[in-house]
């Protein structure tokens, strides 16, 4: 008997759900941020100080990485709905991109 193979689905679905939750609450008001150009909120020192705080760094990382896992999941399944591309290829492209963005934003937030 072939041993049961573990699926990545619980992990990718959790990241999808976390990203979807974050995006549902925060993306609409964040998209109004260009209005913040009128105020003091986006001054370099202020945003830099936010990034230099460990909690601020964690928030920025989550705000970038998790919505990308959310988008990767929906895009992968959407492409499958539209019968575009081979599953393995679209899987690698969608989730691979989210993985790379997670690494790069993590590097920028913590180590740059």
């Amino acid at each position: 008997m072939k041993s049961a193979r573990r699926s990545n689905e619980p992990l990718t679905w959790s990241l999808f759900a976390a990203g979807g939750l974050l995006a549902a609450f925060l993306t609409p008001p964040l998209l109004l941020a260009p209005l913040g150009l009128l105020g003091e909120g986006l001054r370099f020192e202020r945003v830099r100080a936010f990034l230099d705080h460990p909690l601020g760094a964690l928030i920025l990382w989550a705000l970038i990485a998790l919505p990308l896992w959310h988008a990767a999941h929906r895009l992968y399944h959407g492409l499958s709905d539209l019968k575009v591309g081979a599953h393995r290829l679209t899987y690698a492209l969608c989730y691979g991109f989210a993985f790379l963005v997670t690494l790069y934003s993590g590097y920028l937030v913590w180590f740059a």
Partner: peptide, 19 residues
Amino acid sequence: EATALFVGGYGLVLLWGLS
């Protein structure tokens, strides 16, 4: 499902800002 393109796209706008 298509909203994800904009949710993800905005993530990239934020990444550009972080950089």
